[in-house]
Design a protein around this nucleic acid. Structure first.
Lengths: 230, 230
DNA sequence: TCAAAAGTGTTGAGTTTACACCCATGC
DNA sequence: GCATGGGTGTAAACTCAACACTTTTGA
């Protein structure tokens, strides 16, 4: 069988982080090629003997020096034949979340040419990465309401107000504090710890922790996470 | 830039149809190659200048002579490097639904080597298509509860009992007829027509029709389709 | 007249919404 | 003592779940 196909396979990662009450995305500046100087998503070509997911993890390590907290395949972009001006490239995009510690670490070291940008102040992106990013943001928004992925964006110990803030800043909605707290606590997978935080003004606040094991058990037992807002 | 990647890009389609109160999937029998004689999903390699979705549509036309009712990208399978024994192939799988007319048409003509199999009586599949199919079935099940895709599996005019049956046979759950009907009708996107069907024994039944336009309007207005069961 | 499927309402339980005041701390 | 964010309860509206009998037709 002769197969003379000339399509290249790449992976891209949309990495979200949350800090200073804002959603951020990780971008790298292209050093060479047709998009030189432009900011783009972390990504690159897949090796012949490499799993797709392994390729994403490698690129994240190489280009940004991070390991992520959550990683899932998002979508494969390959309908626009001229996505990359050099050749036909099909890109398998992955959706990733890092928690705040990783985010800060990175912002300090400023490794490579990778930087976090708040999604409210993005530079123009190369290739079709604007489009890919918008698909990722959609996914993030919708997943927030039916999977407990918000916790993957927060540090291990967090304040209820952080969680609340994360939801309302990402979804762009008002939330009733009391109802939100009641609902989340009713699930039973948050642990109240004996630590308190005084990072904010006002009354010190309890720190909470997401008990992943407990969540998995509940899920097994037929429980469905779901958050709606008034 | 020298890029010596040797990965091939394919597409596969998981096409579901519903008839005789059972979910069916479309398979084709391999004529040549390492899986000769085995049943596999419709699929093939993508042309260099062809959009991914266009490739799926082409394969569906060529291998099975059908056009589908609903088509969306499912997942890209490319983590197992040896999915295809001949070479590294990354496959972008698409999820498709056809309505019953298309299904019957096809069953009659028996075009090519394509056949519908009830998912309860599948032959062993080639490559990793068992796995792909199971992912697709999962997707179908979950989409049924939050998107009105059941209608894409039914003929234009259908009985309430068909709809009900579709849900309970695919999801494997009992449904309360009264509550189900009440719920679906409350959405307001089903039209009661003046046609009746006598295909079943017993009292003749009204035929209904899904008003897609109406659904789109509701969706725009912030309506969310959702069906839960007792 | 019998068998088979279609059609139809009500009630109680549970969930969701709306809403406002006191608490603990730092300055 | 005041500014700041943390913490809490209740009542009304709504939605969901459970449940059984009558209707229409063909055989």
């Amino acid at each position: 069988m002769v197969l003379n196909q000339n399509i290249k396979v790449a992976v891209d990662a949309i990495v979200f982080g949350y800090s200073q009450h804002q959603l951020h995305v990780l971008l790298v500046q292209q050093k060479y090629g047709p998009m030189q100087g432009r900011w783009v998503l972390v990504g690159g070509f897949v090796h012949d003997d490499e799993a797709l997911q392994a390729a994403v993890e490698r690129e994240l390590r190489e280009e940004a020096g991070i390991t992520v907290n959550y990683l899932e395949q998002l979508y494969t972009f390959g309908d626009a034949v001229q996505r990359d001006p050099r050749m036909r490239v099909v890109s398998v995009a992955y959706f990733a979340l890092v928690n705040a510690t990783e985010l800060k670490l990175h912002a300090d070291t400023d490794a490579a040419d990778a930087r976090w940008f708040p999604i409210s102040a993005l530079p123009p992106l190369g290739y079709d990465h604007d489009h890919i990013l918008s698909v990722a943001i959609q996914r993030l928004k919708s997943k927030l309401s039916y999977q407990p992925i918000g916790f993957d964006l927060l540090p291990e110990y967090f304040l209820f107000s952080d969680l609340e803030n994360l939801y309302c800043s990402i979804l762009g909605q008002e939330i009733d504090r009391r109802n939100f707290r009641k609902k989340i606590l009713s699930f039973g997978f948050l642990e109240e710890t004996d630590r308190v935080s005084k990072k904010n003004a006002g009354r010190p606040a309890k720190l909470f922790r997401f008990n992943k094991l407990k969540y998995k058990q509940l899920e097994q037992a037929g429980f469905y996470f779901e958050i709606k807002f008034a």
